[in-house]
């Protein structure tokens, strides 16, 4: 297990390296970037930047410094928000984003896994078609369509839930539902496909031939095998959830990282956008790593 963990950790290094290098090149190649000084900016920011990035040094030293800063999780100052570092903004916004994303993923799993199994068991019957249609709907309805419609219905026309903000826990209900919709749909489809496959396998027939209860056949024999593809989907899902939360936070006006990111992008706040991209990249890489480890732990056939 330890060897496997180390192997996986080492495997993440190239990804990390490419992410960092790619963003470094982007920043330096970009026309109108702060480093080419084509843009007007407050002198104190400019001075700060030059000091920060040591623009007079040769490029490889800049690159080294850049790597070093990131190794310390130091993403530098924000342009847009004066006297605020990107780290401050991330620290401020991350709890909100994490709450929305975490609960959305949880909701998607809680709904998607059982519904997917149900659809598989009732394959080609009404329940299956219904589940599959709902899933297709979830995949076809982008969050920025679902969210406004939900707001119109639950907040504007009926005064059931707040339309935005983070004033109370009720504020999180609509965002979490919206964000969860697409992942529920994907998990349902994956779960359906894998359950159908597992249902055909010989060991399920053995379990039935043993006279076990239906609950035990499904819970102990089918579920652990059928859930593996869902587990490996969680890696890409984490990246997609981060992406999705950008839209959600924008629509519901929640002060999460995604909102800062969009504001930064629209206002060309280079350091903020770069910092958040890197931060998200690190999260995604870390999450993929965790998912891989969980997978290895769940599937006894994975050799460490």
């Amino acid at each position: 297990m330890l060897a496997y963990t180390i192997k996986r950790l080492l495997g993440a290094i190239p990804t990390l390296f490419i992410l960092l290098t790619l963003s470094f090149i982007l920043v330096h190649a970009a026309p109108g970037s702060p480093f080419s000084m084509a843009r007007e900016m407050p002198p104190e920011v400019k001075a700060n930047l030059e000091a920060k990035y040591h623009l007079d040094e040769p490029i490889y030293e800049q690159y080294g410094r850049y790597l070093l800063n990131i190794a310390h999780f130091d993403f530098g100052p924000s342009y847009q928000y004066k006297d605020t570092t990107v780290n401050d903004l991330i620290a401020e916004g991350f709890p909100v984003s994490l709450t929305i994303g975490g609960f959305a993923l949880l909701l998607a799993l809680v709904l998607g896994v059982p519904l997917g199994m149900l659809a598989a068991v009732r394959q080609n019957r009404i329940t299956d078609y219904l589940c599959s249609a709902i899933a297709l709907g979830g995949i076809s309805m982008p969050s920025f369509v679902i969210a406004p419609l939900l707001i119109l219905w639950a907040a504007v026309y009926n005064d059931w839930l707040p339309a935005g903000g983070v004033d109370s826990w009720q504020s999180y209900i609509l965002p979490v539902i919206t964000l969860a919709a697409m992942f529920t749909a994907y998990i349902l489809r994956i779960m359906r496909a894998s359950t159908i496959e597992v249902l055909r396998s010989n060991f399920v027939r053995t379990a039935r031939a043993k006279g076990l209860s239906t609950a035990r056949v499904y819970g102990v024999h089918i579920l652990p095998a059928a859930i593996l593809p869902v587990v490996s989907y969680l890696g890409p899902a984490a990246a997609a959830i981060l992406t999705g939360s950008v839209v959600i936070e924008e629509i519901f006006g929640m002060p999460g990282i995604g909102r800062f990111f969009v504001n930064g992008a629209l206002n060309r706040d280079y350091t903020l956008v770069l910092g958040i991209t890197l931060f998200y990249g690190l999260i995604v890489i870390a999450f993929n790593l965790v998912v891989d480890l969980i997978y290895g732990w769940l599937d006894p056939r994975v050799t460490y």
Binding site: A12, L26, T243, F261
Partner: peptide
């Protein structure tokens, strides 16, 4: 695959 592409595109 492991890169957060949406963010790189926005970047």
């Amino acid at each position: 695959y492991a890169l957060p592409f949406m963010f790189l595109v926005i970047l």
